[in-house]
Design a protein around this nucleic acid. Sequence first.
RNA 1: UGGGGCGUAGCCAAGCGGCAAGGCAGCGGACUUUGGAUCCGCCAUCCGUAGGUUCGAAUCCUACCGCCCCAGCCA
Length: 566
Amino acid sequence: MDTNPAPSSERSDFLREIVAADLRSGLHQSVVTRFPPEPNGYLHIGHAKSICLNFGIAEEFAGRCHLRFDDTNPIKEEQEYIDSIEADVHWLGFDWGEHLYFASDYFEQLYEWAIHLIKTGRAYVDDLSADETREHRGTLTEPGRESPWRSRPAEENLDLLARMRAGEFGDGARVLRARIDMASPNINLRDPVLYRIVHAEHPRTGDAWCIYPTYDFAHGQSDAIEGITHSICTLEFQDHRPLYDWFIENLPVPSRPRQYEFARLNLTHTVLSKRVLLRLVNERHVRGWDDPRMPTLSGLRRRGFPAEGIRDFAAMIGVARADSVVEVEMLHHAVRDVLNRTALRRFAVLNPLKVVIENYPQDAVEEIEATNNPEDPSAGSRHVPFTRELWIEREDFMEDPPKKFFRLAPGREVRLRSAYFVTCNEVVKDVDGNVTELRCTYDPSTRGGSAPDGRRPKATLHWVSTAHAVPAEVRLYDHLFRNPYPGADGRDLFEDLNPDSETVLRNCFVEPSLAGLPVGQTVQFERLGYFCPDVDSAPSAPVFNRTLTLRDAWAKLQAQGRHGTT
RNA sequence: UGGGGCGUAGCCAAGCGGCAAGGCAGCGGACUUUGGAUCCGCCAUCCGUAGGUUCGAAUCCUACCGCCCCAGCCA
């Protein structure tokens, strides 16, 4: 059934080359990576790139990949996010087995290492305020100045740190800093903060702590504790690497991980910033974190994107160190590729127009056999009821069609998919001149969709029997942002929101077999696109989300104004 | 004007001194009971620019240009 090999086998990139070389040279016996999200939001397609990279490398080199939450800032982190992240990584198709960790698991060890740094003269408690610290830091071109507290005796530092931990001081009153070099051209080395006082409830440790390690002090050491061999992160952490290495060199850590950076994913018509995504949710521009327009994994899932398509996409775009913006069409291609192979075909009419087949028996109901997936014979077939009155797509009829429109028109014969050829004889209109009904005749000898005389209509239409049709709501989705580069040229991002990103259709009809379709199963509505039931569905009132349209040559012609005239 | 990175087609991306992979998009055409899918063609004399080294450079050297990141007690 799976005829299309995912483009993932002999893939290589600079990271895989490094890993391969380290294994070959014997530097490492096996590779250990990790995906380290901060639980302060939902995972998005950018994280998927990192997940596929880290879990993918571990898989390919027979190593392992840990899921480790970087939960060092209780102010922003929540259990809800932890839960969603675990669910999303699993959904994407990866498993960390026993290796679920939290940076907060290491708080005690980290604290001991902080003491070690104080004892070796490499850390001190600073009483400067946040503002004063900033002033002392210097600028990009000027060196910083040393804090007056920089050379406190170790005993005093030890005492102060213990009292910080004990809760004797308020938020921001003091910090623990590394004593490195206030004149370093790399600002990260100008005595970075190791611990700050934050009296806040932590989702995991509760109120056990009121001092929390910073990212820099926690990340590398957590890697070392877990025996991570290759710590892969995004480009903006390059400047932190010397600091990462400094801790590894100056602490009695159990292993020596190395950090490597790659370019994060950017997508056209999309924003991948947790800050902005949070705003979209809070300001009700979308239905929530899992809105089908959101680039979150939960949104893409609700939209009907298969995990396999996202994985294929990640493999397709590769990994490099150059900043880039991938066209969202590439994601769509990967998704269509999977769905074309796997999605069951169904009939659904979004914008109905009634067709009456005048020479078809009044009360007859025929069970027409229709193929479930022409790409996959093993998917079998189903029966669709055919009767004298049908719904067809309003767009499939034109009273006065332009040259390249070859669907239904007065006097013209078309094929009703899997059923019969029908010819339009009469157009019924209301008082305003709107077409309300088509009177047609069918050719009984064309049952199944082919004529004994070999004639072939230029078009095939989908249809649903009016007597059997299930009413449904269908939600059409388009880019959340209309501009390919939202917020470019100094514009406010929110000005670029696409006002038509969601269109709700309430007068749709779907074939009976679609009534109980489970949420999560994406099907193809023939000739229209891929759709999946939404969680908003009620037993008697199904709601479908449009995942993606099919590629549409006619729509393209129309957009180009090249359909010609009559 | 400090430090760290990056510049190969509209987009992503191989290339690791021997004379420009692949994918997406686009454009032609074939086929078609989805204007879908599939198939077959076309799409960089050139690799940010200018010099240099070499028999030979996208790959090495030099200079210049452009873009991104860093001055959170965020990650």
